[in-house]
Design a protein around this nucleic acid. Structure first.
Lengths: 159, 159
DNA sequence: GGAATCACTGGGCAATCTGCTCAGCCGAAT
DNA sequence: ATTCGGCTGAGCAGATTGCCCAGTGATTCC
C-alpha cells in the first residue's frame, strides 16, 4: 500500500494530460512502455486509481448553485434517509458524520430560488429533524488530488 | 447551454466505461462515429466535460480519514486564508460559503490522530478565528453526477 | 553460496483506433 | 427557395494498443 515516485509522476502526468496514452507517457517519463502499463494496471487494481470517468461541470449543465446541507436525523432513521437522498439527482454526495449534524450532503440547483425546491425535496422526509444549509459562493480550491499524490509519492511514511 | 438525450447517453456511457473509445461508443449508441466525435468535442469546449483525469482514492494512498471543517475567518483575511489552505496537501477542496461559517473545506488524514496534525496546520494561521470539524464515518452516496446528467438530458428546462 | 522471484528493458507483431477528409442527405431557419 | 447546421457512411495513412518474448539486475529465500 502506497505509491512511489514513478507512480506519482504517472498520476500527475495523467491528471495534466488525460488523453495522453501509455506510449507517450513512457516517452515523457523515460521508462519502457511495459513499465508504465504494468504500473497503471497495478494502480487500478490497487484501487489507487478508481477510474477515468468524465468530470462533468454541474454549472455547465444548468446547475450553477452549489450548497452544503447539514442534516439531523431522527434516531434509527438513518437507512431510510440515505435511501431517500440517493433518489434525489441534485444530491451529488452524502456523508454521515460525527459532530453537530448527522449527515452532510452536497447539493446543486438551477438558481437560488430553485435551491429552495431542492431543499424542500431533501428535507421533506420523515426522518429528517432539521437541516441547515450553506450556499457556496466561491470555490478557491476545486477538488484536487495532485498535491496529496505528490506528498504520498515522496515516501512520506506516516505509519 | 444544456444537453440533449444523446449527450446524456454519451456521458453516461463514458462514465460507466471510461476506456471505451469513440468507435465503440458510436456502435453502442447506434450513431455515426463522426457524430460522437463532434458531440464530445462540443461537450468539452462547452465545459460540460471538464476532462478525464484519473479519479484517485485518498484511502488507497494512505489517507483513509475524511473530514469537513467549517472555518470562521477574521474580516478581510479571506485572501490570505485561501492562499494558506491552498498550500496544505490534505486540503482537497475549499469553498467560501454563506451561513454559520465563512469557509468549508474537505480534509483527509492518515488516521484520526493524524487528523489533529492536519487541523493544527489548517487552523494554525492568523486569519482563522474558529474551526469546527466533522469527521466522515460513512459515504452512502459517493460523489456522483449521472443522475443529474440524466435529468438534464431529459430537456428538464427549469429556466 | 545458490536459486528463485520480481520489476524493468527493448524489441516485435497483428489488430485496432484515431484524426482527418469528403460527399450526400435532411430538417429548420431565413 | 436558399442557406445553414447536424448527421451519415465511407476511406485513408499513421499511431497506438494489447500481447508476447528474452535478457538483466536486484532482492529475497533456502
Amino acid at each position: 500500500m502506497g505509491i512511489d515516485r514513478l507512480d506519482g509522476r504517472i498520476i500527475t502526468l495523467l491528471a495534466r494530460e488525460p488523453r495522453i496514452g501509455v506510449l507517450e507517457m513512457s516517452r515523457r517519463l523515460g521508462v519502457a512502455r511495459g513499465t508504465v502499463q504494468a504500473r497503471l494496471d497495478r494502480l487500478q487494481s490497487n484501487g489507487v486509481i478508481r477510474g477515468f470517468g468524465p468530470q462533468v461541470d454541474p454549472a455547465a449543465l444548468g446547475y450553477p448553485v452549489t450548497a452544503f446541507a447539514t442534516l439531523q436525523i431522527r434516531q434509527g432513521q438513518g437507512a431510510d434517509v440515505r435511501a431517500h437522498l440517493a433518489t434525489v439527482p441534485e444530491v451529488l454526495e452524502l456523508h454521515t458524520t460525527t459532530g453537530t449534524g448527522d449527515m452532510l450532503c452536497r447539493l446543486v440547483a438551477r438558481s437560488n430560488a430553485d435551491l429552495q425546491r431542492v431543499i424542500d425535496r431533501v428535507v421533506g422526509f420523515d426522518g429528517i429533524v432539521r437541516a441547515s444549509t450553506a450556499i457556496v459562493m466561491e470555490n478557491p480550491v476545486p477538488l484536487r488530488i495532485i498535491p496529496l499524490v505528490e506528498q504520498a509519492a515522496l515516501g512520506d511514511r506516516g505509519d
